[in-house]
Amino acid sequence: MRIYYFFICILIFSCTPHDENKFSLNGKMQAEGNGKVLYLIDAQSGRALDSTIIEDGRFEFNTKLPETPIFVKLKTKYNFLYTELWLDNNAMVFDAKNKSFSQAAIHGSKAQAQSEKLTAQVDTLPRSERNEVLQNFIFENNDNLLGVVTLYHWFINWGKERTEPVYNTLSDANRNTVYGKEIDHFLTLNTNPDVGDQYVDVSLRNPEGETKKISEFMGKTVLLEFWSTTCAPCRKDNVHLVGEYEKYSNKKFEIISVAIDTDLEEWKAGIEEDHLKWINLSDLNGYRGDVAFIYGIKLLPSNYLINEEGKIIARNLRGDELTETLRKVL
């Protein structure tokens, strides 16, 4: 089973500044958060808008918001508690008393309500219908934040071919948001190399923090393996890769594991636990790193078998298929 990356949050109203502050957010939750500082973060700028302390399973914000609706992150340090939501200039309620923090019932925001409604609608559709609904939705809202945020949460899943024509319909203002700029960065970098193509070189860091290029390890048969410490099928595959490496590492064969991770210590621990004694690299930017953008990584595990001349000769080999291919090649 492969891990698919996707997430959607939808906004249906244009963002407008306002003078009269009517916003408040009153929350109730389980006691696990008591004593922790809860931060309200502008998702676009990354700027902290406010903070408060959770006491007796309750918290309150009376923040002057720069504009509404606004997409925010509500989180504690290290993301022990974390969720994302839309805020409006209204009195709002966040109810996680009898459910997890990330699944809280949120009241008082028309934008959040519409987001949840559309998400539920999309989740019930077959993929082809879902993509058509989302694409048309972005077309209809290409000149406000709604359109670009929707595309931002789907472009990795969609890939370049579907994303680019939709992105090209966005207004200049939307393209200049943080969301629009990241989508443009993906479209600029993405090459989606396939069997018969040359591999694409990229600079990454090893666990010691040293910058290394993939090209430094070429000139032999190389398995370029994309994985993550949080991907159970990847961890299972690592067991098989260890055996293949032991058989062929003295026969001009190398494995380069590129971790689609974000946490350095978890990455290091995964390398040690799985006994990955080959080349380990990452940019620790997860699915939104340059290497993931270049190779179009949207599911894990993924791999490329590259020959001594740098040409991709196979993709996504696992288990017995990988064993047999390596036997023939080496």
Rank of each mutant, 00 (worst) to 15 (best):
W158M: 08
L85A: 09
A269D: 13
V148K: 11
Y4T: 10
T163L: 13
K328Y: 12
T221K: 10
L87I: 14
L85V: 08
D184W: 03
P165W: 12
S14F: 03
F253C: 13
F137P: 06
E216R: 10
C9H: 14
Y245I: 03
F7R: 08
N316E: 05
N238V: 11
I53P: 01
I260G: 01
S128N: 07
R127K: 05
R162V: 14
E321N: 07
V37Y: 11
D42V: 09
A232K: 08
D95F: 00
K252R: 15
K73E: 15
F6D: 13
P233C: 04
D197N: 14
I279P: 09
Y295L: 00
S100W: 15
K99F: 01
D88P: 05
I53R: 09
E324S: 13
T188M: 01
N26L: 09
K28T: 06
F94Y: 07
R327V: 09
Q114K: 15
F7H: 00
D320F: 04
G108Y: 00
E266G: 11
G35W: 10
N21E: 03
L134I: 14
D263H: 01
L85C: 13
G57V: 11
E273M: 09
G310Y: 00
M1R: 01
L40Y: 02
V133C: 02
M218I: 05
K22D: 03
L317S: 00
D95K: 01
E164T: 09
I279C: 08
E164Q: 12
T229F: 00
S171R: 06
D237S: 03
G270I: 00
E164W: 08
W278H: 08
N238Y: 12
P69R: 10
I214Q: 11
Y179P: 08
D50W: 10
S228K: 05
Q114C: 07
R2P: 02
S100K: 15
M218A: 04
K64D: 06
L38D: 06
I214M: 09
L187C: 02
Y78R: 14
L281E: 11
N168C: 10
S115L: 15
E164M: 11
A48W: 10
I294E: 01
I294V: 15
E273T: 10
E60R: 15
V239F: 12
I297D: 03
H275I: 06
G57L: 12
T76L: 15
E132Y: 02
Y199H: 09
L281H: 11
L326K: 07
N136H: 13
K247M: 03
T229M: 03
N316M: 01
L330S: 01
C15F: 00
K298R: 15
T262W: 04
P165M: 13
N168T: 12
F226H: 05
C15S: 14
E116C: 07
M29F: 09
L305F: 08
G296D: 11
N206K: 02
N90I: 05
L224D: 08
Q112A: 05
D290R: 02
Y179D: 14
V200W: 04
R2W: 05
H185G: 00
F94N: 04
T169L: 03
D56S: 13
I138K: 11
I54C: 07
G219D: 14
R288C: 01
Y287E: 04
V222E: 01
E254C: 06
R205A: 02
E208I: 02
T177E: 11
V195T: 13
L281A: 14
N238F: 10
K212V: 05
E266Y: 03
Y5A: 01
E246I: 08
I312L: 05
Y5L: 00
